[in-house]
């Protein structure tokens, strides 16, 4: 064994043992973009295939929710359950980013109606936003080097 090779191996091991890279500058823009357009954070980080799958899943789920005439939650307060459901639902809807903003700006306003299809539509709209939250967390972890 050459002298110094052991030291080199130790140094390499130390480099590998270091924690993930410190938060890279610019993760804010990745997360904001990932919120506005589902999957865009992954596109920005050159993970195009995964970004496309995220975009397709969230967009189709949101569209299905609209086609089932789901209701968009408006924040309401009252008893604890009402506050959790309506404020949580509003945040879930809002998490879809531009899809939600465009829908509201274009005047979509569906009253809460009885029927399982409307119910499913409401849940699809919220779930699309919540899935986008997962995508945003993934994009954040990719941007900060916590994940490959």
């Amino acid at each position: 064994m050459k002298p110094g090779s052991c030291k080199l191996k130790t140094m390499t091991a130390n480099v590998k043992a270091q924690p993930a890279a410190s938060p890279a500058r610019g993760w804010y823009s990745v997360v904001i973009l990932a919120w506005l357009v589902p999957g865009a954070g992954h596109f920005m980080l050159k993970r195009r295939g995964r970004g496309a799958l995220l975009l397709a899943s969230v967009a189709i789920m949101f569209l299905l929710g609209l086609m089932m005439r789901g209701t968009m939650f408006q924040p309401q307060t009252g008893d604890v359950l009402t506050t959790i459901i309506y404020c949580g639902g509003f945040l879930g809807d809002l998490a879809s980013g531009l899809f939600y903003l465009l829908t509201v700006w274009l005047g979509y306003s569906q009253p809460d109606m009885a029927g399982h299809v409307h119910d499913y539509g409401t849940k699809f709209l919220v779930a699309a936003g919540l899935l986008n939250v997962l995508a945003m967390v993934d994009a954040y972890e990719l941007a900060t080097g916590q994940k490959e």
């Binding site: 899943s57 789920m61 086609m67 089932m68 399982h116 299809v117 499913y120 997962l134 995508a135």
Partner: peptide, 29 residues
């Protein structure tokens, strides 16, 4: 936009499908 009518089963299967795609994409190496 056309209105869509789905049964419980169809809606739940679609929900499962897209949720699974996202869960698969964001996990594992």
């Amino acid at each position: 936009m056309p209105k869509m009518n789905l049964s419980h089963f169809e809606a739940a299967i679609l929900f499962a499908l897209f949720s699974s795609v996202v869960l698969g994409v964001i996990t594992k190496r």
